[in-house]
Every structure is written in C-alpha cells, then in structure tokens.
Design a protein around this nucleic acid. Structure first.
Lengths: 242, 242
DNA sequence: CAGTGGTCTAGACCACGTA
DNA sequence: ACGTGGTCTAGACCACTGG
C-alpha cells in the first residue's frame, strides 16, 4: 500500500511560506502595503479565501497588520503599537510617558564561548557590545548590555546610536534591514554590583531583576543577546498569561 | 438619515458569546466534548463556517481544544498540556520532572483593603489564605501565599489540599467548578526575609523574584490573588515574547 | 465504515477609508 | 464611486479517529 504522507502541508501554508520569502527577501518592506488579497490570489493561483488564511496566520504572528479599507501592511517597529511589544517594564504609578534610551558605550570585541553559542556564530567572530541606560521620567531604571553580531551590524557606533531618536529596534530595522520578530527572556533576581548600583542610583546589593533576552529575526535566526538589570523599586515587570 | 451603527458585531461573535454562556452556565463542562460544528450550526441557524470562526477564536483563547477526527473539547486544567500554562519557572539544567506542591497552612480571614480591591469584594468579607511550598526535584524553590474569596471556596481546607495530587487549578476546577482562564503577573526583585529564607534554604537577604498574580475566570472576574517568592539560584522565569 | 474537524472554492454582500 | 479587508453562505473534498 502507499505510505501515509508524513508531511501533509495544506495549500495555505505553502502560500504562507511563499509570502514569508517575500518578507525575508525584502520584496515587501516594513511599513509598506503588500498586494491586495485579490492580487495575491491571482498571483498564486488560489482562491482569495486561501490567501486570507495565510495572511490570518501571519497577522497573528505580528508579521503583518491588516487595516480594513486600506490594505495589509508589513509590521514595523516604527509603528507606535509595536513599541511596547518587547519592553514589559511598567511604572508603579500609571505614568504613560515614554522611556528614554541613553547609549553609554559601544565597542567591538570577539565572540567568547557564551556569545558565540547564543548568537550561533563562531567563537572569535567580531561582535559589537552596546551599553545603554533606560530612563523613565528622567529616573534611571534599566542598564542594558547588548551583544550583536558584527557581521550584520557593520557601521554601528555610539554616534549612530545617539543620533537616533526612536527605539533600538526601529534603528536596526531602518539601518540594517533587520526585523526582530520574537524573543525569549530569562529572568532572575540578583544583587546590584557596585558599578550598576551607581548608575541606577541605588545602594550596592539591592535586589534587581536580571533579564536576559535572545531576539530572533526571520527563520528563527538569533541576532541579539542582551542582559538588562532592572530596578524594581518604582516599576514592575508585567506579564500577561493567556 | 439612519445613524451609523456604533456597535457592529458580526454574527460569529454573537455565536461566540452564546457559546461562552454555555461554558459559564456549565452546560459544557471541562474535559467534555461540545456538540459538533454541524449540530451547532443547526442549533444557531447559521452556516458551519460561521460556527467555525467562533470556535477558532475560542480555541485561540485556550477556552476550547480542537481534536481532528474526535471533536472539540472544553479546555481543562487536568489536561497535561495545560499544566505549565501558568508556571513559567524552569530549572537551569533541563530537568523535566514535575514540581511538587506542598501545602503548608490554610486559614480563614477577613479581606483587608488590598485583598478586597484586587479580588473585587467588600472589605471584611471572608477570604481564605493558603501558604504552600513548591519543590523541584525535592528542592524548595517557591513559597506561595494565595488569597481566595471565601464565598467561592467554601470547604477548602489543608486536608483537602494535601489529599489532592494534581495541580491547584485542577482542584479548583474539579471541586469548585472554577476555571482559570487568564492571569496577570507583576514581577519584582526583593530580598529574602528571615522566614522565607529558612523555608527556601537560602541566606537571609538573598535576592528573590516576587511574583504577584491575579487570576481571572469567565467574564474577567478575579478569583485568585497570590504572591510567590521564587529562588532563582538554579531556576529562571522564562517568558516568550511574540 | 461513519463521523469529526480541516481545507478549498466561488460568489454575494457589508464596513471602512480615500478621493 | 471605488478598492480594500471582513463576513457569510453552500457545497465539495481531504485527513484523522474509532468502532
């Protein structure tokens, strides 16, 4: 008898993967509209409903944004709705003012054991390390140390960082064509060391949140590794469990 | 001219809300199969596709679980897949053994300011407080203090807790007909007090994760407030950002 | 085999945004 | 008025499960 197909893939998933290619190859760029459902149906030779289901899934994954009456757009970190997608820290009082990013340092180095493992590059390959401070209402709350593959982020410097007014990820998107689509955070409680305590204006030894984040772009490629130390005296990390 | 309808609600959402009623009224119980899509379509007088879309949304919200060839089931906390839906703590080494819950105390009290606010009950109304320890591979890792509305949890006692082998929420579901469907966690870093340090076998003052959780049942009714203190020496809190 | 959910189609009509 | 996404229908066929 014929062997059961072990890898049945419905049409709409094949369409989806074609559309993913259009994203990865930058045929469709962040912020831009993609072709209408009718056009895509014609282009792929399927019905509108099938294209629709592919788009539905991609919208659910925050890759596309549908706007009734206007069209379907490639998600962008410039979109105000995406700004807080990765920052879960919230002020105790309901202060809504945007946090401000202050780049402190930016230097080059070679990947050590841990960085190479996390970023899936060879040990010794160039990386870029950024240190920056995050302020809420002028108060220092987060110190981040960010590790980036040098290969991808050529030309990144403290000047570039300081002259950019938007979020880090919108800079990465605009300047390096890199869209962050998913991240994992590992959270622990640690005691503030001397240097960090000074920057965050807390006492040495105060408990801080240690937030390690690995961020992925298309194809689950890790492209950022960062460790943040969060002062939780007047802020907390908010997580919604569904 | 006719006023524009300010509250347009598509058919499938109306169907969805009818199905939500069937859940809340316990017409359909956790673990049981709901009627087939065909039957529901007939019952509500709509096409199968419309029922389908309602079910799709509810499945996305973890209220229902579809099983091809078998039917659609009401989600249950007894389902092994649901066990880790609310516990995000993970051992540093990939140890997969289930954590064990050890109830320590259970007593009655009257709701204070904070408890009444969070649980949306009147100050002075009866509440039940549970303290319990969570062990991973026989090591104490989490101390929880859990506040429950006495109204709902009548008959809850230390004996009941100790004689239950499953998760807390599966107990709540089986014994009190309460299904937890959503939660918010507020996370901070704090120093271990003496009592907690003793229980978790760490030194006083060690940084711990403070995890405050409010859990909601159908209709966004808060029915649990708990505060956990997590030792993150050999474990971390894992959060996936999409 | 019958029954369930899963996919795909084609067509009609509605709501929204823009011009 | 037109084009977009959003809803709804009816029907055909496929994949999976269990008797």
């Amino acid at each position: 008898m014929a062997p059961a197909s072990p890898t049945f893939s419905p049409l709409y998933r094949q369409i989806k993967s074609l559309m993913m290619q259009a994203l990865e190859s930058a045929e469709w760029r962040p912020g831009q509209a993609i072709p209408s459902e009718q056009e895509l149906a014609a282009r792929f030779g399927v019905s509108q409903g099938t294209v629709r289901k592919a788009i539905d899934e991609m919208a659910a994954e925050n890759l596309l944004v549908r706007k009734q009456g206007k069209g379907t757009f490639v998600a962008s970190h410039n979109d105000p709705r995406a700004l807080f997608r990765f920052l879960r820290l919230v002020p105790e009082d309901g202060d809504l003012s945007h946090p401000v990013s202050l780049p402190l340092e930016c230097w080059r180095a070679k990947a050590g054991q841990e960085a190479s493992r996390v970023l899936a590059i060879e040990p010794g390959e160039p990386i870029i390390i950024v240190r920056r401070l995050l302020k809420f209402s002028s108060k220092p709350v987060v110190v981040d140390e960010i590790y980036l593959p040098g290969e991808i982020f050529q030309g990144l410097s403290l000047e570039v960082l300081q002259s950019w007014s938007g979020s880090l990820y919108s800079l990465f998107e605009a300047r390096f064509g890199l869209r962050m689509i998913r991240a994992e955070e590992r959270i622990r409680a640690v005691a503030a060391d001397r240097a960090t305590a000074d920057i965050l204006k807390v006492k040495e030894g105060v408990p801080l949140l240690s937030v390690e984040r690995v961020t992925y772009t298309y194809g689950d490629r890790p492209v950022e590794w960062r460790r943040g130390l969060y002062s939780t005296a007047e802020h907390y990390y908010l997580n919604e469990l569904n």
